[in-house]
Amino acid sequence: MATEHVSHIKPYSPQFGVMIPLGFQKFLRTCVIYQLFRFIAINIRMTVLILKSHH
């Protein structure tokens, strides 16, 4: 149920206007297969950043 992920939000509180992840997005965060791909992606991204930063 997507609603359970937003049930703690009070209307018109500062949190009311915020982007909140629902179930699938939360699942992906700790889904090992998906995260293995993200691990590779993060490493590539950081390597490029390091190479760009040395002068």
Partner: peptide, 14 residues
């Protein structure tokens, strides 16, 4: 192209 952010287990491994 060089500025990004994400949350997940992979970042914890890193």
């Amino acid at each position: 192209n060089g500025t990004s952010g994400e949350l997940g287990l992979a970042a914890h491994w890193v």
